[in-house]
């Protein structure tokens, strides 16, 4: 895609690198003695879409936020591209974060900024602050933003304010913003939970297609088991802060769902 052509150095460097993610002995407790995540061990390949399913409050969001350190892990390692993310601070943490895109449940756009400005937020880790302030972004970034807007079907919306968009449109902007970072990993925290069923499928399709074309590995938290089955290459089931299922979507059977969500009545 034209988007990768615009920053050839970064793209080739990233393509050559190993984008797999290794989590070892990850623990998290917000309140001492009440563990949300207990000894999580996972290796996620540098490609494909990994869906994490599980009931609310089981630590899916915490797990995904520990990876880019929006939440501080209490213990363990998160190794990505040769670095233990759990130990990074300051500039090194910011440098690692800009290689990790994130899509949020409630889109988390800056409402009063235009769609274009929201997309360019994805470049703030790369562009000097004074240039960002004066909106003097490199032309390559602006070209990449327009290309991504076309790719998510919002080509005519560049100058609209984000608060004028519908939920589905906002999430498209959210995906485009994350991809503006030229990420080596995309995290998505319940990207479809605020959307209607049809839009949910469209958003998952879009995310799978755009990341597939760029060969970016995706880790997505999702409530909806059907969506997970349909789009994931691997499903991880969590309950009570532990991984209880890990395998291809085809291997996910009713007994696993019973174990993950408890009870049977809802099936």
């Amino acid at each position: 895609m034209s988007q990768t052509d615009t920053a050839p150095a970064a793209a080739t460097a990233a393509a050559g690198a190993d984008r797999s993610l290794t989590i070892r002995h990850l623990d998290k407790e917000y309140v001492r003695g009440k563990a949300v995540l207990r000894d999580i061990n996972l290796t996620i390949d540098g490609r494909g879409l990994t869906a994490i399913i599980g009931p609310s409050g089981t630590g899916k969001s915490t797990l995904i936020r520990c990876i880019n350190r929006l939440v501080e892990p209490s213990g363990g390692e998160i190794v990505f591209m040769g670095q233990d993310l759990a130990k990074l601070r300051g500039a090194a943490l910011r440098a690692a974060r800009r290689r990790i895109g994130m899509v949020f449940q409630e889109y988390n756009l800056v409402e009063r900024l235009s769609v274009m400005e929201n997309l360019l937020c994805g470049r703030l880790g790369y562009v000097p602050v004074w240039r960002a302030w004066l909106r003097r972004f490199p032309q390559a970034d602006i070209d990449a933003a327009f290309a991504l807007l076309d790719a998510v079907g919002l080509g005519d919306f560049a100058t609209r304010r984000a608060d004028a968009l519908s939920g589905g449109q906002r999430q498209r902007v959210g995906i485009a913003r994350a991809l503006m970072q030229q990420p080596d990993l995309l995290l998505a925290d319940e990207p479809t939970s605020s959307l209607d069923p049809k839009t949910s499928v469209e958003i998952m399709e879009l995310m799978a297609r755009l990341t597939g074309a760029r060969d970016i590995p995706v880790v997505v938290n999702i409530h909806n088991v059907e969506l997970a089955r349909r789009f994931a290459t691997r499903v991880i089931g969590m309950t009570g802060g532990r991984v209880v299922f890990d395998g291809p979507p085809a291997a996910l059977e009713p007994r696993h769902l019973t174990e993950i969500y408890g009870g049977e009545d809802w099936l």
């Binding site: 929006l70 990790i100 949020f104 988390n108 756009l109 409402e111 703030l124 960002a132 959210g174």
Partner: peptide, 21 residues
């Protein structure tokens, strides 16, 4: 705090978080 979280997650320095979020 939501836009703040998103801009922070993109690796933006603090000054950029203030200006954009």
């Amino acid at each position: 705090p939501k836009p703040l979280e998103a801009v922070r997650a993109s690796g933006a320095p603090f000054a950029a978080v203030v200006i954009f979020a």
